[in-house]
Design a protein around this nucleic acid. Structure first.
Length: 584
RNA sequence: GUCCCCGUAGCUCAGCAGGAUAGAGCAACGGAUUCCUAAUCCGUAGGUCGGGGGUUCGAAUCCCUCCGGGGACGCCA
């Protein structure tokens, strides 16, 4: 189904046959041999660099090796126009008939087209959002949420066994502060005048609801009591309330993670102590004093001996503390326990999606995972740059007044989940993203969401018209696949098939690079090719999809249109975006 | 001071783990609508890929260095 892979396998086999025949040395390293479409389509449909890569180890001239390869490949069925070009590329095309069969295969596979087995069922854990349960999600969280979810969808399509996970930071000092804020709001709900929310607490209005709900559940039970009595139950209550809200916000943009891992539960279970013991027994801990940071004013800096992890042995820049000076665990220690836990749950491949402000944390976490898994696990971190929220070019006031934010749910309500999701995926995570509330709603081609959606809707519009004009023509993909595809002969039609044929290849490469945004750009290309073909029918009526007096040709073209819609839908599915069938 | 990310057309960005003559959209200019959705399409113009070295058959891509922009830098999470 993936022609590029098929040819890759054929090239490999051919090279091995050449080795057997003594034309090449035994045991050549073929890993750098690739089969890809040449950048310039006039060179051919396929191209391999085999001759150039192998020339040196084989002790041959690239072009000579290429010529030998050509002789062998010429025997392959359907291969035409074999040429040697440039420094030693071997280019070829395949029969139009082979492309048409590819179209049939796409239709037969339906939305499963592009599914791949590069993941070989390996378990992957994608952890994203993981916002502290101390407030509603903001637009700042949205990007990581969408990127993480789309990445999970992409890996799933590429054949990985994906778990979508959220890490709840419910153990630090901030959740005690949350509890105190909730208690204050609770007293307020019971009629006390509380005045300004003290600095350092969470001033947001959203805490009022939490206080009210607590009052409704527990009445005056926690009034006038010592903090030691209510802190824990109120904390639990508040965290639950906020996490419920987080889940609601996430669900509103189509995200449902299956695992919500609790930091507190890990700490309580002694997982951090276990990390400590394990590292200590392996001689990876020592007590030392860190150098003061260079950039910051070291005014309140005093050297303190701390328990340090030898992170530098695993590629980090400095060793990292596990205990605070009061003896409690650092956040890093807890995080180590969490990542070890993921490894123990069978995730040798872990992906964390973080905001760019955590960039300084990457090396130490990777060092930790390497140390804890004794080199068995790999942690990949996707850093998402910030989102600049604007409206018609003017920057939105992100914090209009103290304690208020532009929340994710506000934005979701305004632009809808599909627009939000797609736009967040139109830039690579490393690059900052402008999100203009007005522009993303524009219905024009400089808005990629509408451009792609419109292509899908347009395809379905044609299918609807076809159903009226040709009521006897079966439109199910499987039926169209059986149709007279030999009637597709126009170079632009075949070009579109070739583009669709690249979908599995794109899925694989995007998944391997952990870059879901590539899907967005690909879908844009497919949409452009389709729109182009559509408009060509305006100038040249013989190219119109519906040909009144030729049901056969119409059937063939509908097959192509159906395939376009399928591929777009399958791409949008990865993104969690609904493909629209009508956009009037 | 150290580390990470970024630097590609006037603007916003792609560039598929090194490939052949560097691409798209916007903006500019010129065209296409009796007809499947013009929410679209076709064409023209626009670039020392930040600078300089290096690696090799071949570099926007990898390495070094410099310049510029952003971010992070003990016990916060």
């Amino acid at each position: 189904m993936n022609l590029f892979k098929d040819f890759q396998a054929k090239i490999d086999a051919t090279l091995k046959a050449m080795a057997d025949a003594g034309e090449l040395p035994e045991g050549l390293d073929l890993t750098r041999v690739t089969v890809e479409p040449p950048r310039d389509p006039s060179h051919g449909d396929f191209s391999t660099n085999a001759a150039m890569v192998l020339a040196k180890p084989a002790g041959l001239k690239p072009r000579d090796l290429a010529e030998q390869l050509v002789v062998r490949l010429a025997e392959e069925a359907g291969v035409t126009e074999l040429t040697v070009a440039g420094p030693g590329f071997v280019n070829w095309r395949v029969d139009d008939e082979l492309w048409r069969r590819q179209l049939a295969a796409i239709l037969t596979a339906g939305e499963r087209y592009g599914d791949s087995d590069v993941g070989r069922g390996r378990k992957v854990n994608v952890e994203y959002v993981s916002a502290n349960p101390t407030g509603p999600l903001t637009v700042g969280h949205a990007r990581g949420a969408v990127v993480g979810d789309a990445l999970a969808g992409l890996l799933d399509k590429a054949g990985f066994d994906v778990t979508r996970e959220y890490y709840i930071n419910d153990a630090g000092a901030q959740v005690d502060t949350l509890a105190r804020t909730a208690h204050l709001r609770y007293r307020e709900a019971l009629g006390e005048t509380i005045g300004e929310i003290p600095a350092g607490m969470y001033p947001g209005e959203y805490m009022k609801e939490v206080g009210e709900a607590l009052a409704a559940r527990d009445g005056d039970r926690w009034l006038g009591k010592d903090e030691s009595e209510w802190l824990e139950p109120v904390r639990t209550f508040a965290i639950d309330a906020l996490m419920r809200r987080v889940r609601d916000d996430l669900e509103a943009i189509g995200i449902q993670q299956s695992v919500f891992a609790s930091e507190r539960a890990l700490v309580d279970a002694g997982a951090v102590q276990a990390v400590y013991d394990s590292l200590e027994s392996r001689g990876l801990l020592y007590t030392g004093v860190l150098e003061p940071p260079k950039g910051k004013k070291p005014e309140d800096w005093e050297p303190r001996p701390q328990v340090l992890f030898k992170a530098t042995e695993f590629g980090d820049d400095v060793d990292r503390p596990l205990r605070k000076s009061d003896g409690s665990w650092t956040y890093f220690a807890n995080d180590m326990a969490y990542h070890l836990d993921k490894y123990r749950r069978g995730f040798a491949t872990q992906i964390d999606v973080w905001g760019a402000d955590h960039g300084g944390y990457v090396k130490r976490m990777q060092a930790a995972v390497q140390a804890l898994s004794e080199g068995e696990a790999r942690l990949h971190i996707v850093l998402c740059q910030l989102v600049k929220l604007t409206r018609a070019g003017v920057e939105e006031d992100v914090k209009a007044r103290r304690g208020t934010f532009v929340t994710l749910s506000e934005v979701t309500e305004e632009v809808g989940k599909d627009v939000l999701r797609f736009i967040m995926l139109t830039r690579k995570p490393d690059a900052p993203l402008d999100f203009d509330l007005e522009k993303v709603m524009e219905q024009s081609k400089d808005n990629p969401v509408f451009y792609v959606q419109y292509a899908h809707a347009r395809a379905h519009s044609v299918l609807r018209h076809a159903a009226e004009a040709f009521p006897d023509l079966a439109q199910a993909p499987a039926a169209l696949a059986e149709g007279p595809l030999h009637r597709l002969t126009d170079s632009q039609e075949l070009g579109l098939i070739k583009l669709l044929a690249g979908w599995p290849r794109l899925v694989d490469s995007a998944a391997e690079a952990y870059e879901p945004h590539r899907v967005a750009f690909y879908l844009n290309d497919v949409a452009a090719a389709f729109h182009g073909l559509w408009t060509k029918g305006k100038d040249d009526t013989s190219l119109r999809f519906l040909v009144a007096d030729d049901a056969e040709l119409t059937a063939a073209r509908l097959a192509l249109i159906r395939a376009v819609a399928l591929v777009i839908a399958s791409g949008l599915r990865i993104f969690g975006v609904e493909p629209l069938e009508e956009m009037r």
